[in-house]
C-alpha cells in the first residue's frame, strides 16, 4: 500500500499488534512541560481515544507523533522502527495522516482540489508531462480523480465538489478535512476533535464515517474527543491525560470507573 520503499519498516504487522509505541515522552516549551513522561501504544486496526481536560497535552501528543514537535526525551517506535527527529512530510510518506483541531484546509481551493492534494504523494509523473497535461500526466490525474470521487461519495459531499472550501459551513469543512486525510490512504489516522462544534446530526454522521473508515479501509485511528458518549461508542481503548501526564489507560469501561479520571473530569466541570 505504501508506495515509498521503506524496507526497514515492518510490513507484516497483523491486526492487534503494536503499530505505534510512545515511550517515556517528555515535551517542554521553555519552562512549560506540555507532556511529562507519557507512554502508551496504538495497535493496528483499533480506534485509540486520547482524552483529557483542556490543555492536557493531547494535541501536543499528536504533534509529536507526526513530527511537528520533537520531544526532549523519550522514543517513538512506528512499525517496528524507532525514530529520531523527523519532518512531517516524512511522517506522511510513512502513512501517517492527520486532521486538525482548528480546520486546516486549503481555503482558496475547491473540495475536489483539497482532497486531490491528499493524493500528492502517490503521484509521480515528472514535470515534463505536466507541461502538456497529456499522456502520463493526464492518465495519472484521471486515475486519482476516480479514487477521490470514491471518497467524495463515501463522505456524501458530492454536492460541494466544486465549491471553494472557505465558503463551506464548519461541519462540512471538517468532513472535507477527513476526506483529504483519507485520500492519503493512511496506515495511521490522527483525528484531533473531529466533532468539535458540530450539531447532533453532524456528529452522528461523523461517527459513522469514522467507524466505516476503520471497517472498510482497515485504518488505525487515534482520536481526540471531548464528547464522552462518542468516545465510549467509538473507541477500543482510551488513554487519559491530565496536565501532560498519563492518569489512566484501558478499555472505555475501565477508564470510566477510574477514580482519577472521575476527579479530573469533575474538576473541570465537563
Amino acid at each position: 500500500m505504501n508506495a515509498m520503499n521503506h524496507s526497514e519498516f515492518r510490513q507484516d504487522i497483523a491486526p492487534g499488534e503494536t503499530l505505534l509505541a510512545v515511550d517515556n515522552v517528555t515535551l517542554r516549551f521553555g519552562g512549560v512541560k506540555a507532556i511529562t513522561d507519557v507512554s502508551f501504544d496504538i495497535r493496528k486496526g483499533e480506534v485509540r481515544a486520547i482524552i483529557g481536560p483542556n490543555g492536557a497535552g493531547k494535541t501536543s501528543m499528536l504533534n509529536v507523533i507526526n513530527g511537528f514537535y520533537h520531544p526532549q526525551e523519550g522514543r517513538i517506535t512506528y512499525r517496528g522502527q524507532t525514530r529520531t527527529k523527523m519532518r512531517p512530510h516524512v511522517a506522511a510518506s510513512q502513512g501517517i495522516a492527520r486532521t486538525f483541531q482548528n480546520v486546516a484546509l486549503f481555503k482558496g481551493m475547491t473540495t475536489l482540489d483539497n482532497i486531490m492534494v491528499g493524493r500528492t504523494l502517490k503521484m509521480r509523473t515528472p514535470f515534463f508531462w505536466h507541461i502538456f497535461r497529456q499522456g502520463p500526466a493526464m492518465r495519472e490525474e484521471i486515475e486519482h480523480r476516480k479514487f477521490v470521487e470514491e471518497i467524495i461519495e463515501f463522505l456524501e459531499i458530492e454536492h460541494i465538489r466544486k465549491v471553494p472550501v472557505g465558503k463551506l459551513p464548519y461541519g462540512l469543512q471538517k468532513r472535507v478535512e477527513l476526506g483529504r486525510a483519507l485520500a492519503m490512504q493512511p496506515e495511521l489516522l490522527l483525528l484531533d476533535e473531529p466533532m468539535a462544534g458540530m450539531n447532533l446530526e453532524e456528529k452522528e454522521d461523523m461517527c459513522r464515517f469514522i467507524l466505516d473508515t476503520k471497517e472498510q479501509y482497515g485504518t488505525t485511528i487515534a482520536l481526540i474527543e471531548h464528547d464522552m458518549g462518542v468516545v465510549m461508542d467509538l473507541s477500543d481503548r482510551v488513554v487519559v491525560l491530565e496536565y501532560g501526564q498519563k492518569i489512566a489507560d484501558g478499555t472505555p469501561d475501565e477508564v470510566k470507573k477510574n477514580q482519577k479520571v472521575i476527579d479530573a473530569y469533575l474538576g473541570v466541570a465537563h
Binding site: N66, F68, P88, H89, A92, A104, F106, K107, G108, L121
Partner: peptide
C-alpha cells in the same frame, strides 16, 4: 495544487507529504 496548498496552509501541505 502543490503551489496553492503551500499558499493556503503550509503546515497542512507538509503533512500531505509536500
Amino acid at each position: 495544487r502543490t503551489f496553492m496548498a503551500v499558499r493556503d496552509m503550509d503546515i497542512a501541505a507538509e503533512l500531505m507529504g509536500i
